[in-house]
């Protein structure tokens, strides 16, 4: 991955975000600047309450900035759009729709004809390995399967950016590792620009081209660490001394700010 030759996809410029509390203003983000290149995989780590979700919601168009600019493809973000897929920690699947109907949701909203919709849904359901559960309701799925469905649903509308807010946070360690590997595999096949929020330092290093470490009070970027490990990231990479070194660096940046 050479960042110099690629174009900037996401550009956050001196963003400030405040929330009006009862009697005072709360600064959730202050002076946050970050550029993410096309097809780059960036992970964001930081202590709870440092504004990771807020930053992601701003890029997703679910929150507005108080000052500064949040740009996607050179245009200021003014609301949600199908160019940015969002994957939430709480899965957020529509519980009354089957896996297939969930995956088709965005396509239906966009007015994609039925046959085309079915074909695209099929493809992405297969991509996440849920073909046997295509007609199951979310209540029948395990947490990991729900999250895979959410990933397929986000992919189906073909966004150029994926914003993922602690998508694997609620899963057990083993499922997590599996899904990390699978996510990278998917990303390798279907390149997208990814911003991935996590609490887990290992996960941050394993997935990323770059790890953004944030600090709290006020929420800001503390350090950006390049991860020069080769893809595909195999188990070997995960157990390599280089990985360990990077993990230590990120760990220090997070816990000794």
């Amino acid at each position: 991955m050479t960042h110099a030759t690629t174009t900037t996809k996401i550009s956050v410029q001196d963003v400030r975000k405040t929330f009006q509390l009862k009697n005072k203003e709360f600064v959730a983000l202050d002076g946050v600047s970050l550029d993410i290149a096309d097809n780059e995989f960036v992970t964001v780590v930081g202590p709870s309450g440092c504004g990771k979700s807020t930053l992601m919601n701003i890029l997703g168009g679910l929150e507005t900035v108080s000052a500064g600019r949040a740009m996607v493809d050179g245009k200021e973000v003014s609301g949600p759009g199908p160019d940015r897929g969002v994957i939430f920690q709480q899965y957020a699947l529509f519980p009354w729709l089957t896996v297939r109907k969930n995956v088709e949701f965005g396509l239906k909203v966009a007015g994609v004809p039925k046959a085309e919709r079915a074909k695209r849904a099929e493809y992405f359901i297969e991509m996440v390995g849920l073909e046997q559960f295509a007609d199951a309701l979310p209540k029948m799925l395990s947490g990991g399967m729900k999250q895979r469905c959410a990933i397929a649903r986000a992919y189906a509308v073909n966004p150029s950016i994926l914003l993922m807010d602690e998508p694997f946070g609620a899963l057990d360690a083993l499922t997590r590792v599996k899904l990390q590997e699978q996510l990278l595999e998917t990303w390798n096949r279907e390149k997208r620009t990814v911003m991935f929020i996590t609490h887990d330092v290992d996960e941050a290093v394993f997935l990323a081209n770059r790890v953004v470490v944030m600090a709290a009070r006020p929420g800001r970027i503390h350090e950006v660490i390049d991860v020069d490990l080769p893809y595909p990231r195999t188990e070997e990479v995960r157990l390599s001394p280089e990985f360990g070194e990077l993990r230590n660096r990120v760990w220090h940046a997070v816990y000794h700010q």
């Binding site: 168009g61 679910l62 949600p80 199908p82 897929g85 939430f88 699947l93 529509f94 949701f105």
Partner: peptide
């Protein structure tokens, strides 16, 4: 989150009402 999920998938108010609020 369900409303937000629909919004980020491109749904506007009318669609959100019919496809999310009513069934929920």
């Amino acid at each position: 989150t369900l409303i937000n999920a629909a919004r980020v998938l491109g749904a506007k108010d009318g669609t959100i009402f019919v496809r999310v609020v009513v069934p929920a």
